[in-house]
């Protein structure tokens, strides 16, 4: 939590004499407000995540005091050297700090933050996303990544061939020795779009993004490429941290109780792959439960109880 507010602090300082509307129009300020934890680039999503809701394991809820819900325009206090606008807030021309969202009020030291309950995915460079190919031409593919616009994957940014030959999470690769592959590969990059088709689902990384153009993706890198088998579902982006849990605790719990593997991408898409359909189905229900009850106390225990009792009913 401490990294969070320090990031928020330095980037959200709004000079007193600037009109607040102009501040928000300045792309840097607003973008940084949106992504205070941009330090998380490149970290595997299943290991850690932005800890926006604070693990109840470490008493995060109690630390922040009562979970007050605030609304857009609600005055949270007067801006002073001891009270500064953080994530999800802004100072109005009168010097009041107001909330920009419906969300939880959170105080960290001098900063007052508002964590929104809902929100679409805003692409960030370095995020791992799961996207569906919806269109393609000779040089690029277009993917739906649950963002305001489609994302582009250029042929030149696609990884070296079908990653699906390796099962996600383990197993050796097939297709010849490294020497053989090197001889027939042209440096690992294909210049046309024959390797993926419309309807394929891909794990990709956001390569480039600024608000004026579509996000660019790449599948060059470990653990990137098309996924095969299993099932995908959407969850609301602000609930991702709860699904991951503190240091991946919720995901690990789900992995241990069922035989399923779980990949939670930053754009709110979850890939589930298990050995049994009933377990996959159960996992879908468990994830929906986590999504609906993300703000509650004692969720981890309830999820454990729920999954354990349902697993007993699963046909062996």
């Amino acid at each position: 939590m401490s990294e969070f507010h320090e990031e928020g602090g330095s980037k959200n300082e709004i000079p007193e004499d600037e009109h607040y509307e102009e501040d928000l129009a300045d792309s840097n300020t607003f973008d940084e407000e949106e992504h205070p934890d941009s330090e998380d680039h490149g970290k595997a999503p299943i290991e850690e995540g932005p800890e926006k809701f604070g693990g109840e394991e470490e008493g995060g809820l109690e630390e922040s005091g009562t979970r007050e819900v605030v609304t857009p325009g609600q005055v949270l206090g007067a801006k002073s050297k001891d009270l500064l606008p953080g994530f999800g807030t802004v100072a109005d021309p009168k010097g009041n700090i107001i909330s920009l969202y419906v969300g939880f009020l959170q105080k960290h030291g001098k900063y007052v933050n508002v964590i929104p309950f809902k929100g679409r995915y805003t692409p960030r460079v370095g995020d791992k996303v799961i996207g569906k190919i919806v269109d393609k031409n000779v040089v690029l593919w277009k993917l739906d990544i649950n963002a305001p616009c489609v994302a582009i994957l250029r042929a030149g940014d696609a990884g070296e061939g079908d990653r699906g030959r390796r099962e996600y999470g383990g197993g050796g690769s097939k297709g010849g020795s490294p020497q053989v592959r090197r001889r027939f590969d042209r440096g690992g990059k294909k210049e046309d779009t024959s390797q993926y088709n419309v309807g394929d689902t891909i794990i990709a990384k956001v390569l480039k993004y600024d608000r004026t153009t579509e996000p660019s993706l790449t599948t060059v890198g470990p653990d990137l490429g098309p996924i095969r088998g299993g099932f995908i579902m959407d969850i609301a982006v602000p609930k991702i941290p709860r699904l991951i849990g503190k240091a991946g605790s919720m995901i690990k719990l789900l992995n241990t109780l069922t035989s399923c593997k779980l990949f939670v991408a930053q754009n709110g898409v979850v890939w589930i792959k298990g050995r049994k359909i009933d377990e996959e189905r159960l996992l879908i229900r468990a994830i929906k439960k986590i999504e609906n009850e993300a703000h509650t106390v004692g969720l981890t225990d309830r999820v454990k109880e729920f999954v354990e009792s349902e697993m007993k009913k699963v046909k062996v």
Partner: peptide, 11 residues
């Protein structure tokens, strides 16, 4: 609009 989760100056 507020339910959508987009930032708003006020209702």
């Amino acid at each position: 609009l507020a339910d959508m989760g987009i930032p708003m100056r006020d209702l």
